[in-house]
Write a protein that binds this DNA or RNA. Structure first.
Lengths: 219, 219
DNA sequence: CTAACATTCCAATGTTTGTTAGAGTGTTTC
DNA sequence: GAAACACTCTAACAAACATTGGAATGTTAG
């Protein structure tokens, strides 16, 4: 029998948010939810964890009011309870990257192999995409593309990429993106494309980073 | 016997930052450190906790690279390891305030009594302070004032306020501030001033909020 | 109604964390 | 050198947490 003592100092309240951010699994769920609303099953599958565990973590996130749920028939759809939550995730990630050497090393090692497009300005990328100079592909699952994607990007989920290579205009450089710097799907896409002789690069920005930078998102 | 397995997924690294933010005591220490570097003893005293406990929490914060320490003779001075850490704290606090009803209620209740200056723009406050239209007082301990304060503010620590009332120009409205919305020192200052018949208001901004808003800080 | 399914709840496990007590380091002052 | 001081480390315990197995809930489809 637990008593509801609510040791409610102001810091206590804020620490509930901190607690929600203190588990790697929950952070992964937040990043996935930043790509659009999802069911528990989808989340569990994409984060490779047991459904029960995902449910438990989602409960914790819901209690910290970072996520909301919506029932639709058999399924319960979870989503972040605001754009500010996605931006908080970016903020925590940036601070971690700035101060934790280990993380910076791990990230460098990860994206050392495939071509990362030099961080030219987001606007210049946008301009090239608009003019048709380059082809921007979104290699995330289609549902995430539907929930919001970069302007002028076309959906080309990693799993289908190989079969759908013919859809890509010949001779044009391809720029791939996925969920953000922690996501390896764009790396794999670039590898595959280069193997087929297609000029390909990746950008580490995902939709969340793009949006947080004040740039437009299409739907 | 613990093995140093370092389950180093990327999320694992970021969660170290989250863990550091998951304890109310640590958050309080972060807020205090945002006011300027401090020794363990000062921190323990201001946060009303045992020195040993403060030391333990500081160790955790240091391991998450959110704070740094610097030895100077007998004393070890702790400080945030970057402005970004202070801004992360603001970000977490803002998200908590936006999504946790309980916190918003607690805050409203807290600042219901004393006069909160209507959130007129920071610039207009600055202008009035510059022109001498109002007197801005910083009621934090003097050391924190020294480490950085609002432009045109004069130091008037809460503990000395009563003795030093004569220093205030007569007939002018006083605006008090302290560490931020969680800090009650400005509330107490306003109460005391009003009791003496002095027109007094508070602003909830502290130096950190002011600075994060892109406004200048004096030193 | 029942069956199938998505999701959550409950209970039990081992692990991590917060806290305090007491001892130990390193630095200054005499 | 010794004493005083600021701070940290070790050990210990209770509380909180993550994870898994098994059962329960609520919904749709028949």
């Amino acid at each position: 029998m637990k008593l509801n003592v609510t040791k409610s100092s102001l810091y206590e309240h804020v620490s509930r948010i901190g607690k929600a951010l203190s588990s790697p699994k929950r952070l992964e769920l937040i990043e996935l939810l930043a790509q659009g609303e999802k069911t528990v099953e989808t989340l569990a599958q994409q984060a490779r964890m047991d459904v029960r565990l995902a449910s438990a973590h989602l409960k914790a996130l819901r209690e910290a009011r970072l996520v909301e749920s919506r029932r639709e028939g058999k399924f319960i759809h979870y989503s972040l309870s605001g754009q500010d939550v996605a931006e908080l995730w970016l903020n925590v990630r940036d601070v971690a990257e700035a101060h934790l050497l280990e993380l910076r090393l791990a990230l460098e090692q990860m994206s050392a192999a495939p071509d990362v497009l030099s961080p030219e300005s987001r606007e210049s990328l946008l301009a090239k995409a608009r003019s048709g100079d380059i082809v921007v592909i979104d290699v995330r699952p289609e549902a995430e593309y539907e929930a919001g994607h970069l302007p002028f990007a076309r959906s080309m989920p990693l799993g289908e990429l190989e079969k759908r290579l013919a859809e890509l205009p010949v001779g044009k450089a391809v720029v791939a993106y996925c969920r953000g710097p922690f996501c390896v799907m764009s790396d794999e896409a670039v590898q595959l494309l280069k193997k087929r002789g297609i000029t390909a690069h990746k950008i580490t920005d995902g939709v969340t980073e793009w949006q947080a930078g004040g740039l437009p998102i299409e739907r």
